[in-house]
Amino acid sequence: MGYGIKLHVWGERALFTRPEMKAERVSYDTITPSAARGILEAIHWKPAIRWVVDTLLVLKPIRFESIRRNEVGNKLSADSVRKAMRSGRPGDVASFVEDDRQQRATTLLRDVGYVITAHFELTDKAGPDDSVGKHLDIFNRRARRGQCFQAPCLGTREFPASFALIEHDDPLPAPDPAMAGERDLGWMLHDLDFANGAVPHFFRARMVDGLIEVPPFGGQERRA
């Protein structure tokens, strides 16, 4: 992995929803590999590359907070849009929030900081002018300048992530002393297998002094 990258991300709030508790959302204790991949993709991604998260370093103590919001219950159906397209009346698809109100609580993380260590692989969509060096350069340049395709977020879009590139030779930020020791975080979402109908894959997350080693996708992990 001579072409790995290290990215420091942090934010005031984060929500990495557990799939088993997603109606009234409860966050995982830390960022998941799939959320970390999403952050990297928000900075640079092309179909020619695939990001692979190697390790996640948790810098701050894990703390939760709860918030309840008014949300809507239903998704827009494609059929109703098709009907409105045919009749040319956008007003027909409008949804009235009063009729469709749900109050949902969210248990989210407060004051988080992580170091994502990752590398990427070329996919079969890579053309002749897609070299590893080119994409690595683009990513590093963007991350260094704070450029991004869209503002990366910590789980959901209302919790934006600040990010800074950690240069190759620079030392990693030190985790909070409270992170010392080993902790079993249980089964955690690794990522979704989009090649096979978005099947979720899980891994047993162990955190040693804040560091979580992410096993290779499709390796030893079990399927949900």
């Binding site: 300048r145 704070g146 450029q147 934006p160």
Partner: peptide, 9 residues
């Protein structure tokens, strides 16, 4: 630029 010129924070 469209990608941005400085970190948001």
């Amino acid at each position: 630029s469209a990608m941005g010129n400085a970190p948001a924070h």
